[in-house]
Amino acid sequence: MKRRKAVEPWAGWGAGERAEQHYLVTPRTLAGGGNLRHISDHLRASGWRDKSKTGGPVFLQSPDRRLRALYDPTSAPGGWVIQGAARNHQPAWWAHFTPQTPVEIVAGLTDALTRPRSAHAPNPWEPLRTQEWRTSTGPVHTGALSPDATAWLRWQQTADGSAVWWSGAKNERDETVWDAHLSASTPLDLVTALATALASPEPVMRPRGMVPPSTRIRTTSVSVLPSQLHAWQEARVTAARAGTWNSAAPPTRPPRPSPRTVRSKVQR
């Protein structure tokens, strides 16, 4: 793991607070799992119901009950399971992420669940090509590999002849540190959102002691106040709430002219 010089503290620190050491990590695909609240807080702020039980797995459900997000570290293989019920012409779908999948990558998909679908035709390969991932096509798969050859996204046929989306990352020992499987019926706009988060060159932040040991990781040490971390988390939650309010607000209509105004115009 390559470490860079610590970044100088920000100006305007509050009195009585002690800075905590964190690291900006690239590539994000090897940064480790991260804080689950990055996902769960955003879904709650977007109107999802928290149906978790004390001491049990995280369980969130969309307002229309069609979507579910579950994180259960006690079950095998554990990790996040996202499910969508069938509706109209859209069949049921599912996505599973193992526990060490970076939360920022899982959030690529879960955040997209809280937004209206884009009017543009989704293309999962486009954000990968933009970041210079190498694409390939074979007899049973189409895939893309990151420039450093640590991460991938593939559309492939399984042994029983069905198809599945498969993503993941490996360390320098060729060990798979996390992977994800998505059903063939997963909406393409969600796969595209996942691919965008997967290929993003932006670093992710991890606290001291939570950075996986790997020679393929580059880190920059930063000193962060607890109040700053809270402010960044709140900004994400506030944006989610604003997006939910805007989507739920009734469309505005132009004011209707009064009969008196209409008669006045006719007389002219």
Results as ranks from 00 to 15, higher is better:
Met1His: 11
Met1Arg: 11
Arg3Lys: 14
Ala6Asn: 06
Trp10Phe: 12
Ala15Gly: 07
Ala15Thr: 12
Ala19Pro: 10
Glu20Gln: 10
Tyr23Glu: 04
Pro27Arg: 04
Leu30Trp: 00
Gly32Lys: 02
Gly33Thr: 14
Gly33Ile: 09
Gly34Thr: 07
Leu36Pro: 09
Arg37Pro: 00
Ile39Gly: 10
Ser40Thr: 15
His42Arg: 15
Gly47Trp: 04
Trp48Leu: 02
Arg49Asn: 09
Arg49Met: 07
Ser52Glu: 08
Gly55Leu: 07
Phe59Gln: 15
Leu67Asn: 01
Ala69Asn: 00
Pro73Gln: 09
Pro73Lys: 09
Thr74Ile: 01
Ser75Cys: 08
Pro77Leu: 03
Val81Tyr: 08
Ile82Ala: 05
Ile82Met: 07
Ala85Glu: 13
Ala86Cys: 01
Arg87Met: 11
Gln90Met: 08
Pro91His: 09
Pro91Arg: 07
Trp93Ile: 00
His96Gln: 09
Phe97Ala: 04
Phe97Glu: 01
Pro99Lys: 06
Pro102Leu: 11
Leu109Met: 12
Thr110Asp: 03
Thr110His: 02
Ala112Glu: 14
Pro116Ile: 10
Pro127Arg: 06
Thr130Glu: 15
Gln131Arg: 15
Gln131Trp: 04
Ser136Gln: 13
Pro139Leu: 06
Ser146Tyr: 03
Trp152Gly: 02
Leu153His: 11
Gln156Tyr: 13
Thr158Asp: 09
Ala159Asp: 14
Asp160Glu: 15
Ser162His: 15
Ala163Pro: 00
Ala163Glu: 14
Gly168Asp: 13
Lys170Ala: 14
Asn171Glu: 04
Glu175Ala: 13
Asp179Gly: 07
Leu182Lys: 00
Leu190Asn: 01
Leu190Arg: 06
Glu202Tyr: 04
Val204Lys: 02
Val204Cys: 12
Arg206Lys: 07
Met210His: 05
Pro212Gly: 07
Thr220Gly: 03
Val222Tyr: 04
Ser223Ile: 00
Val224Thr: 10
Val224Gly: 01
Leu225Ile: 08
Leu225His: 09
His230Cys: 03
Gln233Leu: 13
Gln233Asn: 14
Gln233Lys: 12
Arg236Leu: 12
Ala239Asn: 02
Ala242Ile: 06
Trp245Phe: 00
Pro251Leu: 13
Arg253Val: 12
Ser258Gln: 14
Pro259Lys: 05
Val262Cys: 00
Val262Gln: 02
Val262Thr: 10
Gln267Ala: 15
